[in-house]
Amino acid sequence: MSFKLIEKHRSFGGEQCKYRHYSEVLHCEMTFSLYLPSNKEGKKIPLIWWLSGLTCTDDNFSQKSGFQRLAEKYQAAVMIPDTSPRGEHVADDEAWDLGQGAGFYLNATQEPWAKHYKMYSYITEELTAIASSLVPNFSGAESIMGHSMGGHGALVIGLKNAARFKAISAFAPISSPSQIPWGIKAFAAYLGEDKASWKEWDASELVKEAGMPPILITQGTQDEFYSKHLDETHFLNNARENNVEYNKVEGYDHSYFFIATFLEDHFAFHMKHLR
């Protein structure tokens, strides 16, 4: 495992770091960000994963949300991957909702995507090993959260690894990708036209299973993408037997102003299950 520190900033007593490495899974150079709390008492600390949405990189959450104050308050490390493979030799699309910046946190099976678009394996295997080596006094306790496409990623990765992640939360997630335009377009491209194969990457199918981690979802009523891409009905109908808290908040949109407003609720939720 080889990675290089390219930025480090003091923030609320901890350190906001940015790294670059060559991914053997994605076959390209990647960056990721990691916040390490001060941990002045030398205690074991948990790790929270954040997955960002369409068009984002690992910088959006670290620079816009102000999460560092909460990570320091709760003494939790936070890992922020990029949203897709990157580079001139990596397949892309002219549209903003497919290709680079739109990896959908799955393992693609179709050309020209299959070689590079393995974000699920990248996060759950390669980046997991790197995180374990970079977080001092890591307790081994992990949870996962995300926004929009990253909310989809958090739900899917958390549900597919229910024994690993203690809690899952999402802001305005794509919770039923097989039912909405963003997901249908991406799944058809990355996975092919056989919709049976889509179920493995659809949170509304995965949530049917017993023994899932507790889930918190927050959705703004003024979200411009809500009615077309983020409807929760199918997901919640399938999640009746599971522990899902779904909160609609009046007047909030899809932006980081929305995320920053409710982020402390999400951190408190995660820490309740990580300690």
Rank of each mutant, 00 (worst) to 15 (best):
M1G: 08
F3H: 05
E7N: 15
K8F: 05
H9E: 12
H9S: 03
R10T: 06
F12I: 03
Q16P: 04
H21S: 06
Y22A: 03
V25E: 06
C28I: 00
M30L: 09
T31F: 12
T31D: 12
T31S: 12
F32R: 10
S33C: 10
Y35F: 15
S38I: 09
N39H: 06
K40G: 10
K40T: 08
E41V: 01
G42E: 09
G42Y: 10
K43P: 04
I45Y: 13
W49H: 02
W49L: 00
W50A: 07
C56G: 12
C56H: 09
D58Q: 15
N60T: 11
F61W: 04
S62V: 12
S62Y: 06
Q63W: 07
S65V: 00
G66S: 03
G66R: 02
F67E: 02
F67Q: 02
A71Q: 13
A71V: 15
E72W: 13
K73A: 11
D82G: 09
G87A: 07
E88G: 02
V90G: 02
A91E: 08
W96H: 08
G101W: 04
G103W: 06
G103F: 03
F104V: 03
Y105L: 04
E111L: 08
W113P: 00
W113M: 10
A114F: 04
K118M: 02
Y120T: 00
V135K: 14
V135P: 00
P136A: 15
F138T: 13
A141T: 15
A141Q: 15
E142I: 01
E142Y: 15
M145T: 01
G146S: 04
H152F: 08
L155G: 01
G158Q: 09
G158M: 10
L159F: 07
K160C: 03
K160D: 01
A162C: 03
F165M: 08
K166T: 00
A167K: 04
F171D: 09
F171I: 05
F171Q: 09
A172G: 04
P173H: 04
I174M: 15
I174C: 14
I174D: 11
S175C: 13
S176T: 13
S176G: 07
P177E: 12
S178D: 11
S178H: 09
Q179R: 13
A186D: 09
A186I: 13
F187L: 13
A188S: 14
A188I: 08
A189V: 11
D194E: 14
A196S: 14
S197C: 07
S197W: 01
S197N: 11
K199D: 09
K199L: 11
E200W: 02
M212A: 08
P214S: 07
P214H: 05
I215Y: 00
Y226W: 12
K228G: 06
L236M: 10
N237F: 05
N238D: 08
V244P: 06
Y246Q: 00
E250S: 07
G251H: 08
G251L: 11
Y252F: 14
S255Q: 00
S255C: 02
F257D: 15
F258D: 11
F258N: 11
I259T: 00
A260N: 09
T261A: 14
D265S: 12
F269Q: 14
H270V: 01
H270K: 04
M271F: 13
K272H: 09
H273D: 01
R275D: 14
